[in-house]
Simulated scan of single mutants.
Amino acid sequence: MITIRAYAKLNLYLQITGSRVDGYHDLDMIMQSIDLHDTLRLSRAGDIQLTCSHPEVPLGESNIAHKAARRFFRETGIAGGVHADIQKRIPMAAGLGGGSADGAAMLRGLNCLYGYPLSERRLLALAAGIGADVPFSLTGGCRRAQGIGERLTSLRNQLPGVYLLLKPEGGVSTKDAYQTYDARLAPEPYAMEECMRALETGDLAAFSRHTFNSLQHPAASLCPEIAALLRFLQNTAPASFLTGSGSTCVGLFSSQEEAEAARRCAPACAFSYIAKNEDCGLRLS
Rank of each mutant, 00 (worst) to 15 (best):
A125T: 11
T174M: 01
R144A: 11
A132V: 07
L159R: 14
Y181H: 09
L124A: 13
A132E: 03
L164A: 02
K167R: 12
L126K: 03
C142V: 13
L124M: 09
R144V: 14
R144D: 11
G147Q: 05
L126C: 12
L138H: 08
A127T: 03
D176M: 11
K175F: 03
D133T: 03
G141E: 10
L152N: 09
V162D: 04
K175T: 12
P168I: 00
I130M: 03
L155R: 15
G141S: 10
Q179I: 01
R156Y: 01
G149K: 02
T139E: 14
T153D: 10
N157Q: 11
L138V: 01
V172E: 08
A145P: 00
G161A: 00
K167A: 05
R143N: 04
N157R: 05
R143D: 00
D182R: 04
G140S: 11
G140M: 13
L155G: 06
E169L: 12
G141N: 09
G147R: 06
L152H: 11
Q158K: 15
S137D: 10
G129Q: 07
P135Q: 13
G170C: 08
S154K: 14
L164V: 02
E150R: 08
L166D: 07
K167V: 07
L138T: 00
K167L: 07
L155P: 07
P135W: 11
